[in-house]
């Protein structure tokens, strides 16, 4: 029983991401002007790729992306690619990120997240041969960066509960 509980404990970040993906498709919007989901999953992946990559590893991130792609109507594979990309960037630089204080870490997140969202926008333009509106991306980015301390606090709290595997 305790083994099952501990396995469940380690699956919590993945479950949180799955829940957030499902939350994103609910028919209501946080923004009255643009209908768009906020990909909070990016914040969680970034946090865990740095602080606890063993519980939210690249395989979990990949399947969360596939799940999001299956549910959403964006071109298949697009979200999977960018979820894995943010994991890759964060995990590759984790030794450096671990030395930073929170303000610098937050700035680093803002930089990486901005790059990933911009790349996603350009990638979509390329594969759809259309120019989607850019303002929603700015709104998504602002919300993701401004809410990062809250997301980091939640992830940190969850991380404490999980402990080391």
């Amino acid at each position: 029983m305790s083994k099952v509980l501990s396995t469940f404990k380690y699956a919590l970040p993945t479950l949180l991401c799955v829940l957030l993906v499902m939350f994103n498709v609910m028919p209501f919007s946080l923004n009255p002007y643009y209908r768009m989901p906020i990909p909070f999953v990016l914040s969680i992946i970034f946090y865990y790729a740095v602080f606890h990559p063993a519980v939210l590893n690249v395989i979990c991130v990949f399947f969360i992306g596939v799940f999001a792609d299956t549910l959403m109507s964006t071109p298949f594979g697009l979200q999977t690619f960018f979820y894995v990309l943010i994991f890759f960037i964060a995990n590759l630089n984790r030794r450096y990120f671990l030395t930073l204080n929170f303000a610098d870490f937050w700035m680093s997140y803002a930089l990486v997240c901005g790059g990933v969202l911009l790349l996603m926008y350009l990638f979509f333009m390329l594969i759809s041969l259309s120019i989607p509106p850019f303002l929603p991306i700015i709104f998504q980015y602002s919300v993701l960066v401004l809410t990062y301390p809250v997301m980091a606090w939640v992830c940190g709290w969850l991380n404490l509960k999980i402990g080391r595997p």
Partner: peptide, 19 residues
């Protein structure tokens, strides 16, 4: 180190299938 690269390549393949 290489697992994320491998998954990035697979994701690119998925985009190809999706398109």
């Amino acid at each position: 180190l290489f697992a994320p690269v491998l998954f990035l390549i697979i994701a690119l393949g998925l985009i190809g299938i999706g398109v």
